[in-house]
Design a protein around this nucleic acid. Structure first.
Length: 913
RNA sequence: GCAGGGGUUGCCGAGUGGUCAAAGGCGCCAGGUUCAGGGCCUGGUCGGUUAGUCCGUUCGAGUGUUCGAAUCACUUCCCCUGCACCA
């Protein structure tokens, strides 16, 4: 069995026959399948293979069911990662080049040539396409495109024009992580160490300086605005530089470093420096209590965090208490704002004393702070102010809102996990974009339509439906443009690019015309053109070139099944629903079904570059063969859970295929011979499976399918081999090969041909279950033989000798009648009465009654004595061979041993001598 | 913190009121195989017991509902994922 030869042969034949190039075929029932298109910044690994293999199995199943199926593929290159990677290659970044060489096996000379984004895209997309062809995905490659293709750009621009028309596109302010040197937004892959910047809203409260010549405020940053009632003083760091600056017409005092970082979002106008000593002489008015409080010095205050000025709430902030204590003021009045069970009026003081924290520089102060903050946030109750009696966590928001409403506070956005550095070396700050475009997924009618669509959709696995619903509710405004990246220019501001998740929500519509549209000059693909093709309206509906495209779109749409990994529910898949219901008013064009799957683990752990345990798909195919890999990446677990790929699984699949391969070859000689009992058993089992498999396929219960039509089948075949003298399996394989073809298309094509069939198995009809071949008594008989076989093994083990002679006694039919009677009368007294009424031999009945009644609800429904005798007689030769002894099968009515009478239905008496 | 998912016998992983000492795979043990090894086949793999049996204990921990719970409810501990501009 040469996997590579078979795979090459059949992928060539499919390509030559253009087997999977699908065009509209009016009159035929269609199914349109898509899977999330790949992002070509690395080769695909076996994990990517799971989604596509699932989609391919489904497509192939639907073809067997007689549907006209389209399964296209394209490449998503939108956004910044490819740009960033190309740049890093150009800069000879050792991390990137190291991963290329070690994990992807790309030689350094080759890697060096990939410093241009387009070269990178071309290299990896080519690699991915080859892999997809090698593994046998039934894709219509004519429809391939890249998301930076000019025609596709025009399509996406059309989409955004429609969104604007619908009022879903809005403009507003938006905070983002920003590199002041590059003048660009930064995300994880732009930072040193791939840190994902976390933005955090922080409240800034203004404390007016009392008695100042002109109005001026100290601005303090706080995460706990509710504690403003308990402020005893303000902290500044005497080592830091402070400035006076104008902010929205008011003068504020802020640290120099803070002003630098916050300038972009606050628009500060610097007036001049102010010495820390001068600030320390001031008194500041608490905007909530109107109390004037002094300003003190504290080393723990950092000029770089927030505004560089902090309010002091010693009752609730350990650091504030410690700093006061360090100044010798540990016993001043500390107003309590929040009550906390288990603590006194000053929880911060309590914990500092309990933990024995030395001073404000003691690292233990951090732990104390964390504990008090967490506890007060969740268990604390307000004891002061307007919201007394409410939970601290609720009061926090209300108090901040109140302060802002009265102009006593404003918000800033900071980096919660800073400091972060751009790859260029500069300090990442927060910028507020003034003219950011958003898609407003918060529009109620839009949400309602999305929910309506969801309700009408089939969701596999079913238990993820709630997650979609949650996501639909959770979506609000979503930024849809970025300053840089590959992809499509934003039509209403060409200096911006459409963001990567926003340009991949309705591209499935584009596939339906992707190859035809190439014949039309890009410049003619204007709004009216796409209106005509996808909405059937506007001036160009009569355009001759539109007609064909419109027809194709209407033939294939809607998408019958969309496939992706489950992590995309929170963004892509829900955006897919939103944009479809938004752009396409006709409900018949809305998505029908979404299928999501879990990840593939490698030997039990997540694949990652840092662990170096990524198995590239093409490497895996080379090692195991395409069909084995296809099977191994999908069969290990339910669709929704992660599945583990490891060598022993793949080896197991491979060795089972080797057995099947041999049997197929052998069966070719055996055509036309009559079927014995064991063939009838096998065919009975198979026909039962065919019936179940049809349902399992349509539900994509892949794990169950794998057990049912592969693992169980190979174990049946192993039993068959033991029981049968010469393989006679042609009829079996005729059906089974079709049944499993979606999983193992290459081998199955080969076997299909070997078995003398014409055409591709890929388009053969799904086998029909032959109910006449399903035979309970044969199957039960075979089970009995297996059981007897095992029992002989056990008994001879227990008595410690090899059998010379085995005699098997089959229970009389009256015992079977008794079993049935017991099932009808599961209580001992009624059972005995019923038995007496039916004139059973009551002495024999009472001997059996105890055993029967104990297991009355698990009692087998026995087959007849004759059926048991037939089965065991058929197996007598086999059993004799197995144990190299003589085997005799007798009814219990012909006893040669007293044990004969202990025979029970489904449990013959066995005498070993 | 909030939201979602989960803890099953050596491991992975089925099982969602009785038919469950609990599928299947892997690992391990014993035996077999014109078997070098690997492979393949049969049996075993919670404890005890036995001519193929029967008994006891188990499904993160605890409490409860029930004639009956791995399965339902409550409490508790632990783990994983997501929390937005990132594809």
């Amino acid at each position: 069995m040469d996997a590579t030869a078979i795979e090459t042969k059949w992928s060539r034949r499919w390509a030559e026959a253009r087997a999977f190039e699908s065009d509209p075929a009016p009159g035929k029932e269609k199914r349109y399948i898509t899977a999330a298109f790949p992002y070509p910044n690395s080769p695909q690994h076996i994990g990517h293979g799971r989604t596509y293999t699932t989609a391919d199995i489904y497509s192939r199943y639907l073809r067997l069911k007689g549907y006209h199926v389209l399964f296209p593929m394209a490449f998503h290159v939108t956004g910044t990662p490819i740009l960033a990677m190309a740049k890093r290659i150009a800069g000879k970044d050792p991390d990137v080049l190291g991963v290329f060489e070690r994990i992807y096996g790309i030689p350094p000379e080759k890697a060096a040539t990939l410093s241009e984004p387009r070269a990178l895209v071309s290299y990896f997309s080519d690699e991915i396409e080859r892999g997809m062809k090698e593994i046998g995905y039934s894709i219509d490659w004519r429809r391939k495109f890249y998301s930076y293709d000019e025609r596709f750009n025009r399509f996406i621009q059309w989409q955004f024009r429609k969104l604007k028309e619908l009022g879903y596109l809005i403009k507003g302010e938006y905070p983002i992580a920003w590199c002041p040197a590059d003048k660009n937004a930064v995300s994880a892959h732009d930072t040193r160490g791939d840190v994902d910047p976390e933005l955090e809203d922080v409240t800034v409260i203004k404390f007016a300086v009392s008695g100042a010549e002109e109005p001026v405020s100290l601005v303090v940053t706080t995460y706990r605005p509710e504690t403003v009632y308990g402020v005893t003083n303000i902290w500044v760091n005497p080592e830091a530089k402070y400035l006076r600056a104008k902010h929205k017409g008011e003068v504020i005092i802020i640290s120099e470093k803070a002003a630098e970082v916050l300038n972009l979002q606050l628009g500060l106008e610097i007036i001049g420096e102010i010495k820390a000593e001068d600030i320390l002489k001031m008194k500041a008015v608490n905007p909530m209590t109107n109390e004037a409080v002094p300003v003190y010095r504290a080393g723990f205050v950092s000029a770089e965090i927030g505004t560089g000025i902090v309010m002091s709430v010693p009752a609730h902030a350990p650091l504030d208490y410690l700093a006061l204590r360090d100044l010798g003021m540990g016993s001043i009045r500390m107003p309590q704002v929040v009550s906390l069970k288990g603590y006194g009026a000053a929880p911060a003081k309590d914990i500092v004393e309990k933990m024995g924290v030395k001073d404000q520089l003691d690292p233990a102060s951090e732990k104390a702070t964390e504990e008090i903050y967490t506890k007060e946030a969740h268990e604390g109750v307000m004891v002061l102010g307007k919201y007394a009696g409410q939970k601290a966590i609720d009061a926090k928001v209300k108090i901040a809102d109140d302060l802002r409403a009265h102009g006593k506070a404003f918000n800033i956005v900071t980096l919660g996990n800073g400091p972060i550095f751009c790859r260029c070396g500069s300090h990442v700050v927060v910028n507020i974009l003034k003219d950011q475009w958003f898609i407003d997924y918060g529009v109620p009618e839009w949400k309602a339509k999305a929910k309506e669509c969801l309700e009408g959709m089939k969701i596999i696995p079913a238990d993820t439906r709630g997650e979609y619903l949650y996501t639909i509710d959770w979506f609000k405004t979503r930024p849809s443009t970025r300053a840089a990246g590959l992809g499509t220019k934003f039509p209403f501001d060409e200096s911006k690019m459409i963001e990567a998740l926003s340009d991949s929500t309705i591209y499935m519509a584009y596939y339906t015309v992707a190859h035809q549209i190439k014949e039309i000059p890009a410049t003619e693909l204007d709004e009216a053109f796409f209106d005509a093709v996808f909405l059937g309206k506007g001036p160009k509906v009569t355009d001759a070139r539109v007609g064909k495209l419109r027809e194709s779109f209407l033939f294939w749409y809607p998408v019958d099944s969309r496939h992706s990994a489950g992590d995309l529910i929170r963004n892509h898949l829900t955006l897919y629903i939103f944009n479809h219901v938004g752009i396409f008013p006709e409900k018949k064009l809305w998505p029908k079904q979404i299928v999501t799957n879990g990840f593939v683990l490698m030997d039990g752990s997540k694949m990652s570059k840092s662990m170096g345990n990524i198995l590239p798909l093409r490497k895996a195919i080379k090692e195991y063969g395409a069909d084995v890999i296809r099977f191994s990446v999908v069969c290990g677990a339910d669709l929704s859970s992660d599945t583990d790929f490891n060598r022993s699984v793949a080896d197991g699949v491979r060795s089972r295929m080797a057995l099947i391969d041999k049997l197929v070859q052998d069966s070719l000689q055996a055509g036309g011979k009559p079927h014995g009992r064991i063939e009838r058993w096998l065919l009975s089992r198979l026909n039962r499976k065919i019936e179940r498999a049809d349902k399992l396929y349509s539900e994509l219960a892949i794990r169950d399918l794998a057990l049912e039509i592969f693992y169980e089948v190979t174990s049946d075949l192993q039993w068959y081999l033991k029981r049968s003298s010469e393989p006679n399996l042609k009829d079996f394989f005729e059906k089974w090969v079709v049944l499993i073809a979606p999983f193992m298309p290459h081998y199955c094509e080969e076997y299909w041909e070997l078995l003398g069939n014409k055409g591709f198995v890929s388009f053969a009809p799904f086998p029909k279950p032959d109910h006449a071949k399903i035979d309970d008594s044969i199957e039960r008989g075979e089970e009995l033989i297996r059981k007897v076989h095992g029992d002989i093994e056990k008994i001879s083990g227990l008595i410690g000798k090899q059998p010379q002679k085995v005699t098997i006694y089959v229970a009389s039919d009256w015992k079977r009648d008794l079993y049935n009677l017991a099932k009808e009368n599961p209580k001992i007294d009624t059972f005995m009465k019923a038995a007496a009424a039916k004139k059973f031999d009551m002495k024999a009945v009472s001997a059996l009654s105890k055993g029967i009644m104990k297991n009355v609800h698990s009692l087998p429904t026995p087959i007849t004595q004759k059926d048991e005798l037939d089965a065991l007689n058929d197996a007598a030769g086999f059993l004799a061979k197995e144990y190299s002894c003589t085997v005799e099968v007798l009814p219990e009515e012909q006893p040669k041993h007293e044990k004969a009478k202990s025979a029970l239905p489904d449990k013959p008496a066995i005498v070993i001598e």
